[in-house]
């Protein structure tokens, strides 16, 4: 559906009197499959926002090519590009609704651009509002709505022209946790019921965990890691990825929390991963029994990623030192075990 080939975007900057350039996006290639939910995660300044704007050519890449539905946007003139933009919806962190228009007027606006008659635009805008559950607010103005409602209007506006792709620019970052959940559920429906391909950028790995199929991790303008969401969560390779994964799972005790655990538990601490294979559970209890060890749960974080279990458990082991050593050696042979 979307293919980026060696996309680079630089901005001119001034370093004292020397002109130089800033590489916001640095040689990024990626493919977004039709019907998928693709997450791009990174810290602020990683280049994800620029990358998202390259997809609909709001930012023209310095080099590289962008293909949407097989069409090379770089080869099109500005007029044709505007037509392509009409088939790509976009949702923003700060909503960017038109204050001068009612909710219905906002949602009808892109339909007017697409050449629909006033009546037709109003009808279809009404349908889009029903889809997001705001049909009762059509005549109100954006400032009379809550943040979550405004974002739902933003989504309805982006969907009004029945686009094939929806780009989400930190769509939930300005919302509280509960509203974030509602908006993510809505995006999931957009994907499942309307078949819209979604590309979203976020700095919250939890958003990726909840609705994405695939993820690309960005740092300093480059994609440092990408893959299926479960695989990336279960086996992060890059250091930036692992810190994002930990921030979403909260499963591994670190820093001061780890110190407190050590102070509270006299025995040896060991962190055991829990994955979809489910092998660790039974294996663990069998091994503990064989070596005659007792344990206490010191810390645990296991949740669902793509509807499959993932996380880890930190145990305090109690028993003779040599038995613990032998237990750890055998467990390490079965999979990865981190000794906290």
């Amino acid at each position: 559906m979307i293919e980026l080939r060696h996309v680079t975007k630089t901005f001119p900057t001034r370093d004292g009197n020397r002109k130089s350039e800033f590489r916001a996006v640095d040689d990024v290639s990626l493919t977004v499959e039709r019907g998928s939910v693709f997450g791009i995660v990174g810290h602020s300044g990683a280049g994800k926002s620029t990358l998202l704007r390259v997809i609909n050519y709001l930012e023209e890449p310095t080099s590289g090519s962008v293909l949407v539905d097989g069409q090379d946007l770089g080869a099109l003139g500005e007029r044709r590009r505007r037509a392509v933009r009409r088939s790509i919806g976009m949702v923003f962190q700060q909503f960017h609704l038109f204050r001068s228009r009612t909710v219905l007027g906002n949602v009808a606006y892109p339909l007017g651009l697409a050449g629909h008659s006033r009546r037709e635009a109003r009808e279809r805008a009404g349908e889009a509002l029903r889809f997001v559950g705001l049909e009762g607010h059509a005549r109100r103005y954006p400032e009379q709505l809550s943040g979550g409602q405004r974002q739902r209007v933003g989504i309805a506006r982006a969907l009004a022209t029945s686009p094939k792709v929806l780009l989400c620019d930190e769509a939930t970052s300005a919302l509280d946790p509960q509203t974030t959940g509602e908006v993510l559920d809505l995006l999931e429906r957009v994907n499942a019921e309307l078949g819209v391909t979604i590309v979203l950028i976020t700095h919250e790995m939890d958003v990726v965990r909840r609705i994405c199929d695939r993820v690309a991790v960005m740092a300093d303008g480059r994609v440092v890691e990408s893959g299926g969401v479960y695989d990336v969560f279960a086996r992060p390779k890059h250091i930036v990825t692992s810190s994002f994964v930990r921030s979403a799972l909260h499963d591994v005790p670190e820093g001061a929390a780890l110190e407190r655990l050590r102070a509270r538990h006299g025995g040896r601490l060991v962190t055991v991963p829990v994955t979809r294979d489910g092998a660790d559970g039974p294996d663990l209890s069998r091994l503990l029994r064989r070596y005659g060890l007792d344990f206490a749960i010191a810390h645990a974080g296991v949740g669902e990623v793509q509807h499959l279990p993932l996380g880890s458990v930190t145990l305090e082991l109690r028993g003779p030192d040599d038995a613990i050593d032998a237990f750890l050696t055998e467990l390490a042979g079965a999979g990865e075990v981190a000794v906290a």
Binding site: R82, A83, R85, F92, H96, F98, L113
Partner: peptide, 27 residues
């Protein structure tokens, strides 16, 4: 006028003249 609404209109495929007349002036 907030540049965000201009970007939103651009993302919907609005032409520069259209943006000025139907977004900037009303806003």
């Amino acid at each position: 006028v907030d540049t965000g609404v201009v970007e939103a209109a651009r993302s919907m495929g609005a032409s520069p003249l259209r943006i000025v007349l139907t977004v900037l002036v009303p806003e």
